[in-house]
């Protein structure tokens, strides 16, 4: 991985990425994780030597068995939680140096975690309230936009409990969008939903990603979801948590449900599954080593 080499900004990076061309590699890094180790207080080695560069406009999935450090890596990417060693940079700037100003990122969690007492609009507004408090027409417009984009217009005054699981997740995505982030970090966002809803939301996320020109890092443990969504699937292994493979999915965007039933899709899924099997086999080898 060419983590340290920073290439100049490509004139039109987004178009190339949308087209799924190899030229994406020339665009500008949004996020650089260099040699990150993370050891928790209890001695768990959650990440060992993680290197990962995410470029402007990319859709990257982190795939791996539970406990392999996906959430840990994502939290580190968000600047939450200290790294034990190594560095994380956003937009070519070291967060430790520039402070939070350079980070325009948002988080979507596995659970919608909407505040049960607040109506949908208030929930979506939360990041704005946390950032600068006070209501402005600008803020209201952002909220309307976000609600519209996720198809929740007209649900402003609903309470979270009145929404289905899928709609709650949409509200949660709207909440992430409202700060107009460049980088969206999603931690198994649809893991708790039924497959139909999940597929629909997958298409919605792809549409939003394209419209908004976001960069997305998407954690999942579903091979199909990873392949369907991403331009790159980063495969991780557990004990210790580490990155073991980085597979490009060359299928051009926009992708439609037809892609799900294509032979290419099946091929990619097979390739990624094998990488995942190899990764877990490696983990087992290590277990045996450590036992003897």
């Amino acid at each position: 991985m060419t983590a340290n080499k920073v290439t100049p900004l490509n004139p039109e990076p987004d178009q190339e990425i949308m087209a799924g061309k190899a030229g994406a590699m020339t665009s500008r890094p949004v996020l650089q994780v260099d040699g990150v180790n993370k050891i928790y207080g209890n001695g768990t080695v959650a990440l060992k030597g993680a290197d990962l560069t995410v470029k402007q406009g990319e859709f990257v999935s982190l795939l791996g068995p539970s406990g392999c450090g996906k959430s840990t890596l994502l939290r580190i990417m968000a600047g939450l939680g200290e790294v034990t060693t190594g560095t994380v940079k956003w937009w070519e700037q070291d967060y430790g140096v520039v402070g939070s100003k350079g980070r325009k990122l948002a988080f979507v969690f596995q659970n919608a975690t909407l505040m049960p007492w607040a109506r949908v609009r208030k929930n979506v507004r939360l990041p704005l309230d946390l950032e600068h408090a006070g209501k402005s027409p600008e803020a209201e417009r952002k909220i309307d936009d976000a609600l519209g984009m996720v198809g929740l217009q007209g649900f402003d005054n609903s309470f979270p409990r009145e929404l289905s699981g899928g709609m709650q997740m949409r509200a949660s995505i709207a909440r992430a969008m409202v700060t107009e982030p460049n980088l969206l970090l999603m931690d198994e966002p649809f893991g708790a939903l039924d497959e139909m809803t999940r597929n629909r939301l997958n298409d919605d996320v792809l549409r939003l990603w394209k419209d908004k020109g976001w960069t997305i890092v998407f954690v999942t443990h579903s091979v199909y979801e990873a392949v369907y969504l991403s331009g790159r699937v980063v495969v991780m292994a557990a004990r210790p948590g580490r990155i073991v493979d980085d597979i490009s999915i060359e299928e051009p965007y926009p992708r439609s449900p037809d892609f799900r039933v294509s032979t290419e899709f099946a091929g990619y899924c097979r390739q990624v599954s094998r990488a995942l099997e190899r990764a877990s086999a490696m983990g087992e080898d290590r277990d045996e080593e450590s036992q003897s």
Binding site: A78, G79, D129, E131
Partner: peptide
């Protein structure tokens, strides 16, 4: 998660 959301926005503790 909500505490982390607030942290990731660097919201002041008072607002959190």
């Amino acid at each position: 998660e909500l505490v982390e959301l607030s942290r990731s926005l660097d919201a002041p503790l008072r607002r959190e």
